[in-house]
Write a protein that binds this DNA or RNA. Structure first.
Lengths: 114, 114
DNA sequence: AGGATACTTACCCATATGGCTAACCTTGAT
DNA sequence: ATCAAGGTTAGCCATATGGGTAAGTATCCT
């Protein structure tokens, strides 16, 4: 299992997320996966390599066809990190609230400062 | 709310995930957040800007101190995408299984082909 | 007023990323 | 044997990213 850095990075690209989505419908060949995307095959292959490098997908070549499939456990690692954070901050929402309400009244031109 | 591209990208960096984790303990100043990280302040500020650009955090400047806080809803967007995908592929795990088992027996030297 | 504190801006740099084309290698079909 | 199909490799290019330094601004403290 790769680290969160590479998993989140892999998911930060629209093309790669689309591939993941496509694969939720079952395994598919490189050609099939590439078709919806308007880019050269070698370019698309690099995306698949990014997905495979962090174990979001597995691939296997049979004859001249390489078939790709999801490795759901990897995405779960990312999901787990997110839900853990949410679990932590939900217990602190009171603090966030007090932070927001404490500042708002005395700072009307706040928008100009971001 | 920013798009998934920028949210996942923001989370793909170890420093930025650490900031998110730190902020689950409540709002904090830039200085406080920067301390654990061995890098120049301007460099660290860029990380905060990435987090703020995709709305994972909110910041507010009071006097000379800028305070940062989480915006949990944004992270939930990422979590939601992941859990949606998982929901989809869990209904297809049978297909994944048949894919894996169909190939394994007749391809013992598979490891060499990745 | 003057110095310290807490950012903030401007700018530089090396590497990574996403895109391309051209050419190559297997495998399957005729 | 030859040709088409499906990848794959190699190499080029522009931009983005993560890191740094130097100098500036705005507050707060004394």
């Amino acid at each position: 299992m790769a680290n969160l850095d590479s998993i989140f990075h892999a998911l930060s690209d629209c093309t790669r997320r689309a591939v993941v989505q496509q694969l939720t419908g079952g395994p598919a060949s490189v050609k099939t996966l590439a078709e919806p995307h308007a880019m050269a095959l070698p370019t698309f292959l690099k995306h698949l390599q990014v997905l495979e490098a962090c174990d979001l997908i597995v691939t296997r070549k049979t004859g001249r066809v390489r078939t790709c499939a999801l490795q759901p456990e990897t995405a779960q690692a990312a999901e787990h990190w997110l839900s853990t954070q949410r679990g932590l901050w939900e217990r602190r929402l009171d603090r966030l609230d007090s932070f927001l309400t404490a500042q708002t009244p005395k700072d009307p031109d706040d928008a100009a400062q971001s």
